[in-house]
């Protein structure tokens, strides 16, 4: 039987890689993908604990997280397409009109 800590370690690694992606990359698509990776890492954690505690509530929560992640991706991509159309770039440091 695979120990729970392996799953938690894997999930921590995936989450950290996602954090690095959000912090380093300036392409708005990559930032969105990194956010999806972090949500994915949290999901792995939830399912692992759900399995080892023999409790299905964690899986229910994962279903909601997946739904919200899909919704977020849909809205974010619509916004990105609009931004790229209006500003001609996907470089986040140039989206600074609200800085004043």
């Amino acid at each position: 039987m695979i120990p729970l800590s392996w799953y938690v370690l894997l999930s921590a690694a995936l989450f950290t890689i996602g954090v690095v992606g959000v912090l380093t990359r300036r392409n708005v698509f990559i930032i969105l993908m990194s956010i999806e990776l972090m949500l994915n890492a949290a999901n792995i954690n939830l399912v692992a604990f759900s399995h080892y505690l023999q409790n299905l509530t964690g899986q229910i929560f994962v279903i909601f997280v997946i739904t919200v992640a899909a919704a977020e991706a849909a809205v974010a991509l619509a916004l990105i397409i609009l931004l790229a159309r209006n500003r001609g770039t996907v470089y986040v440091d140039e989206f600074n009109i609200m800085k004043g």
């Binding site: 698509f29 993908m33 999806e36 759900s50 399995h51 994962v62 997946i66 991706a73 991509l77």
Partner: peptide, 29 residues
């Protein structure tokens, strides 16, 4: 982790939905 339903949901929603949407958005920009 014996979560078959979630595994299938992951394939359908993430691979079939989110990734394909992402690819289309990248190609559109």
């Amino acid at each position: 982790l014996d979560a078959e339903f979630l595994a299938i949901t992951q394939v359908v929603v993430y691979i079939g939905g989110v990734s394909v949407l992402l690819l289309f958005a990248i190609l559109l920009t």
